[in-house]
């Protein structure tokens, strides 16, 4: 069920970005998204939730809900990273733990932003996705 949810959300994001064919327009949109992201509770913007990238810092908090889904909130000190983090949260948050752990995340590739997931970008996004999956996998194992 939840796998379909993630797939449908990825399609949404891809459709949304299809409106922009110019590189700069795409980033303009990402910046707008970054401004809108519901930031993580300031109380949770602590070292405990910090994913230290080389350049931009990312904070991620995960909460297991009673229905077996995971709720993510996240933030970054760089606005483009924040936009990307926001997209990742939009796609994965509220899905079932197992679906998150096993999700085939192809939307960044499809919208031409895959370079931000490469470890050389050092923006913390790749580490964040890894953390999201690890958290979900651990939760799914406990649920099983």
């Amino acid at each position: 069920m939840s796998t379909d949810l993630i797939a449908a959300r990825q399609t949404d994001v891809i459709d949304e970005f299809a409106l922009f064919d110019d590189w700069m327009d795409k980033y303009e949109h990402l910046i707008e998204l970054g401004k809108d992201v519901p930031a993580i509770d300031t109380g949770r913007k602590t070292d405990e939730h910090l994913i230290k990238g080389c350049q931009s810092r990312v904070w991620l908090a995960a909460d297991a809900e009673a229905d077996g889904t995971v709720r993510f909130t996240a933030d970054s000190d760089a606005i483009i990273t924040k936009g990307l983090v926001g997209l990742m949260v939009r796609v994965l948050s509220g899905a079932e733990a197992r679906a998150i752990a096993e999700a085939d995340l192809h939307f960044l590739d499809a919208i031409g932003l895959h370079q931000h997931l490469s470890p050389t970008r050092s923006n913390g996004l790749a580490s964040m996705v890894k953390q999201m999956r690890l958290y979900a996998a651990a939760l799914a194992a406990r649920q099983a």
């Binding site: 590189w23 700069m24 980033y27 350049q55 931009s56 000190d77 760089a78 606005i79 483009i80 990273t81």
Partner: peptide, 13 residues
């Protein structure tokens, strides 16, 4: 402004 944001937008240009 964060240097990473500026650098990313320069790369785009």
């Amino acid at each position: 402004l964060h240097p990473y944001d500026l650098g990313t937008l320069l790369d785009g240009q």
